[in-house]
């Protein structure tokens, strides 16, 4: 049987090749056939999840909640030392210096990255801003959100911090972050679905020892992470409770 692996569409474009390399490494070490399917938007990935075609997923915190609670997935590992934080930025020449300077009616660029959007909207609450009093502009990627700010087509934009840091120096110089989340408890995680649950421990052990071999190490470099940390059931449940609390 061929299993399907997929990755949350908010992965950094620099690491597309890394996920293919990781899949090859995983297949070789597990002796399983795994097909990597990368979706470019959350909607098509969700349709695939709903059709129960996904077996391994590197999921964002929001989707991880749904996969664990509704689809009986199990979280195995999370990237070592990496947490999901969110940045709200404005054009560098904007008179806005803090969230409270933003006024109702602003044009807000955002992606359909669900947990980033959720945290971003929370960070706008102190200025009394909500989807009802902003001009909401959904864009296809963080690069497009940055372009909207640079062209003066948006007044503020919500970014995954990692994606903001991955923008070119030139672009970042033209932007001004006004607030950055410091949550620390929200992270992406690698999950396996019901068809692979019996192999969950084997896969977890394999991933945790990945950095011990030169080949495993080079795959980690291609993914842009230092290694994996184990996630147990309660760690995952805690993150889900936290996400539920803020939605």
């Amino acid at each position: 049987m061929t299993y399907q692996m997929t990755v949350s569409p908010d992965f950094s474009p620099q690491h597309i090749a890394g996920w293919y390399i990781f899949n090859t490494w995983l297949q070789k070490n597990l002796g399983l056939d795994i097909h990597l399917e990368l979706y470019h938007d959350f909607e098509s990935q969700r349709a695939s999840i709903q059709a129960d075609t996904v077996d391994i997923i590197y999921a964002n915190p929001f989707d991880a909640s749904m996969l664990i609670r509704e689809k009986h997935f199990e979280a195995l590992v999370r990237p070592l030392g990496k947490v999901d934080e969110v940045v709200i930025a404005v054009p560098a020449n904007s008179p806005v210096n803090q969230v409270e300077d933003l006024q109702p009616g602003i044009r807000l660029a955002f992606t359909d990255d669900p947990n980033v959007h959720l945290v971003g909207m929370i960070m706008l609450e102190p200025a009394n801003l909500s989807r009802e009093n902003m001009n909401m502009q959904m864009v296809s990627s963080y690069a497009v959100a940055a372009k909207k700010l640079l062209r003066g087509e948006a007044d503020a934009a919500i970014f995954l911090k990692e994606a903001f840091d991955d923008l070119s120096n030139l672009t970042r110089r033209e932007l001004k972050p006004i607030v950055e989340s410091q949550i620390s408890d929200i992270f992406h995680a690698l999950l396996v679905g019901p068809r692979l649950v019996d192999k969950a421990e084997t896969i977890r052990r394999l991933l945790l020892s990945m950095s011990e071999t030169p080949q495993g190490k080079s795959v980690l470099i291609a993914l842009g992470i230092d290694g994996w940390a184990s996630v147990d059931k309660e760690d995952a449940e805690f993150m889900i409770d936290l996400m539920d609390a803020i939605q």
Partner: peptide, 18 residues
């Protein structure tokens, strides 16, 4: 957990001043 309340999580954030 398993249908039973085992504790509570509280999350606090910056409020709208108004």
């Amino acid at each position: 957990r398993d249908g039973k309340i085992v504790g509570y999580t509280s999350v606090r954030r910056k409020p709208s001043r108004e």
